[in-house]
Nucleic acid binder design. Structure first.
Lengths: 202, 202, 202, 202
DNA sequence: GATGAATGAGGATTCATTCAT
DNA sequence: CATGAATGAATCCTCATTCAT
């Protein structure tokens, strides 16, 4: 699978190509399993040259993780903003659609962002953890509003939020050209699943 | 988190302790990130001694992955057997409950089983991939039966099966004593989410 | 004994010093008995640095074996060329002299070249084996010509060629400053022995 | 090539099988290149069991080297004894025949005996070095007698002795079923070569 | 920016050997 | 006699990183 970073955030030139190579290799082999020489080899530079662009292997991962989380925050925030004032159901659907599309559009980035965060020292992972919590709150707020409005019906809202978030995350594990569904089809279906989970799809 | 292997499958003595240490370390750092010396250190043996029990680091992982997939197959098969003849909804609930409980009871094993399979050479991963497909079919069959019986209502059964499967898998990422929910509570809620996804919870 | 490589073929700098150290140690302890750390220690570098110059221990041996065989081919070919048109006896003497001098001048290289070839994987030893066969043919042709011309008298030319070749090879086992013979003296005597073996020294 | 030890000297049972396996492996890979586990594996015993028969890997080699040198001494002494009173030429021929036959009959043993002696600590190699010198003297004496009797004509007897000895040693490198010569044919030819070297074959 | 050479630490694995059973 | 488990030392080699050029 090709490593695609979100538009506009990839640094130009060698820096960007290092990031793309790192993304692909970290996704495939994990942070520990990918070597600086592999990354450099994929970029076509000497491994020492990498240090002219990033101070360490960890900083390459850190930038990827940051980009991944920022992209998530951006997309979810936009989705929430665009549906401000709509019913909780419509807003939830928009959030889930955005979340799923994030994972269909950047599956490798999602895999690295979610799966390799543990490899970062706390001071590098902290900002990402905060973004993640922000996003969770975005979702949780909508669910709570839906309950308050009587739109949703849930015994355990926290588990519902967790489940709906998990649904989207899993998409990165399997979405690809092998599947004969478009990103839109998956997003629509998953939004519907979410509405059903909160019992808004009656 | 303590590394707990399913009952009855842990080899006795040093072999079993190696497996437990490997489970914990592979879950925490990934296959490449965990060293043979770390594993041996956790067991309290010299790293060379490990080779009296397993021919390579990969074989330790392979056995863990095999155990994980066999436990999944066992539990799902049992759940299906116990509900043979029941309505598709009851059977789906039983399968999801079993799937979720697998992930609450052995979260580390699930993380390793799902996340480190790629580190195995194909000949060691093939048997596990087949078990995984078996389990997917178990779930898919129930969903199809539910549709045929008019119990379930779904536009895209394949995506629903994927989503329901993904729900359970994600549980391993967060379930733990920090959460004030019992394994049973999570399983019940998730079973209900699954029924809602297939629109059987009307 | 000091490890002396043929003039002009030693790579400059560290690469060459690695080769010389390898030569000495492989000759003394065999390929398996010499460690990469010993070689590096003799050169005065870290053992990891060796891999900046050769991809593996085997490649160090391979280059030595290649140099040894090429030097043999060069010397024998030159000797044959310089005596083109001479009698078979004179040409045989020239070949044996060249062969013996090769072994007095580079005894360690000969020991490694002949004795450690088996340690190389086939794809690395094949070129050397071909050079060796070339040299054997050079000798065999002269002997056959001598027989055809009536200069030599032999029941079993193949065994004679083998014996004469073997004579030279053995020189590397004992020639050294301890012996009070010069390289020229040994070469002259051995050339004479060869002529006697083919019964040209009547 | 099968590892054949001289008759009557192989210890019975496991001890002997260890010796044969060691012979084969030391000949193929050198002392350092052959492992105790390989030897044990070839014998069909656990590697620890080997220590019930030999106190160390070095002692296995030491016994092989001792057997090899004793066999050489035995055969050469017998050849000399059987030709006591004969002309120097006949005795030289007998010695060379015996020497060559030793190397056709036990090529692996010769390779190990000559090529791996350096791997032994001095106190284990000393006895063998003495046997070797004994054999050299046997040959040197005959050559000197031939010169004194006027049978042989040599400028440099020492080199001649070395050359004739070397001839035989080399036989172990190539003699085998691939060659369409019998052991007797090789021995006869080489004896003749030796006589020619000393110029007794006029 | 880029590189080749260098390094100390550590990787997985094998070594010869020991010992309780 | 034989073994399985154990070990400390050593194996080859790769690691991330540095630095002079």
């Amino acid at each position: 699978m090709e490593a695609v970073l979100p538009e506009g955030v990839t640094p130009p030139g060698t820096r960007g190509r290092i990031l793309e190579a790192g993304l692909e290799l970290f996704a495939e082999s994990g942070f520990a399993g990918a070597s600086i020489r592999q990354i450099a080899g994929m970029v076509g530079i000497n491994s020492a040259t990498l240090y002219a662009h990033y101070p360490s292997k960890g900083h390459v991962l850190a930038e990827l993780v940051r980009i991944g989380h920022e992209e998530m925050r951006t997309r979810l925030t936009e989705a929430a903003a665009k549906t401000r004032g709509d019913s909780a159901a419509r807003q939830l659907a928009a959030l889930v659609r955005a979340h799923v599309l994030l994972h269909t559009d950047h599956p490798l980035l999602a895999v690295v962002t979610n799966g390799e965060l543990h490899a970062l020292p706390p001071e590098l992972s902290a900002p990402s953890l905060q973004l993640r919590e922000e996003c969770r709150l975005l979702l949780a707020d909508v669910v709570e509003r839906g309950i308050a409005d009587g739109e949703f019906e849930l015994d355990d809202p926290l588990l519902a939020v967790t489940a709906i978030g998990g649904l989207g995350v899993q998409v990165a594990q399997w979405f690809g050209p092998a599947l004969d569904r478009t990103r839109e089809q998956v997003a629509d279906q998953y939004a519907r699943f979410a509405l059903r989970i909160v019992n808004a799809d009656r």
